[in-house]
Amino acid sequence: MNYLLGLIVLLIKIAVMLGGLLLVASYLVWLERKLLARLQIRLGPNRAGIFGLLQPIADAIKLLTKEEIVPTAADGFIFRLAPAVVAVTAMMMFAVVPLGPDIRLFGRSVPMVITDLNVGLLFVFALSSLGVYGVALGGWASNSKFALLGGIRGAAQMISYELALGLSLVPVVMLAGSFSLTAIVDAQSGVPFIVLQPVSFAIFVISAMAESKRIPFDLPEAENELGAGFHTEYSGMRFGLFFLGEYVHIQVLGALTAVFFLGGWHGPWLPPVVWLMLKIFIVALIMIWIRGTLPRLRYDQLMALGWKVLIPVSLINIVVTGAFIQFAGFS
């Protein structure tokens, strides 16, 4: 009986989490279109509902009822698999993000996180590396030159940035002394790590932007060079899954930035979940703003930035932080 109750609570937790994730993803699309339009002195979506608020629903219906095309030349199985890989890995990453402190329910404590892995940070890295397969395989399986170029670029870009992304989080792990995201948030109950690690924060945000394949790092898509890059051949809901994956990924990046550097759900006055959502929202807003402001980098500039700037700087940052921790010996 107790087990069953726990199972029901768990299922409700998962449903609320995933529902929220997808709802926010669809409204992030609306927000992005609206804000981007204002930045470009346009109106943006304004036909479906007031302020175009029903636009995401209209989009979902349109994508669902569209014809799905698999080119004859494409590798059918991998072509169908690739968008699912992108969407599933993006959603899975959210499993380790703590939404708040444990709450009491039916006289038992219910953790506000799906799973508190003691290697949570490595879990996130593993999934974000797997997500690259979606891009690379989708580009390759399409059997179109533009898609192939997009896919190769995606793979090369990701592997250049993942190093900087990983190394920028080493100081966070050193300060928290754990890979568990819950422990990392707990370690920031006093001072958020952005204050202690501004360099790490900058490297993390830049490489996370590259990881999310958005302007100024959207070379795998690069509309004006490659058609639509790796998803040129995709239509209907398969394209929709790539799209969904991208916007869930924005939320994941917002959540990870919040967890690693902005103190997670810690904050005064407001309830913890609200604080976390606020931080995710601010990060997403800044990413949209950057998209509306910056041009796309050239390919060699991108690789040079990753290998020649971010990786050496993050390595030196690790050494300095290590010495500082030993020297101060704090907490």
């Binding site: 199972l7 609570v9 937790k13 998962i14 699912a84 969407a87 599933v88 799973t115």
Partner: peptide
């Protein structure tokens, strides 16, 4: 245990995510 943030909840979450995508 479903009350703990352990393997069961991760597996269940994974199953739900994959089912949703399918």
């Amino acid at each position: 245990s479903p009350w703990q943030p352990g393997m069961l909840s991760l597996t269940l979450y994974g199953v739900v995510v994959i089912a949703l995508t399918l």
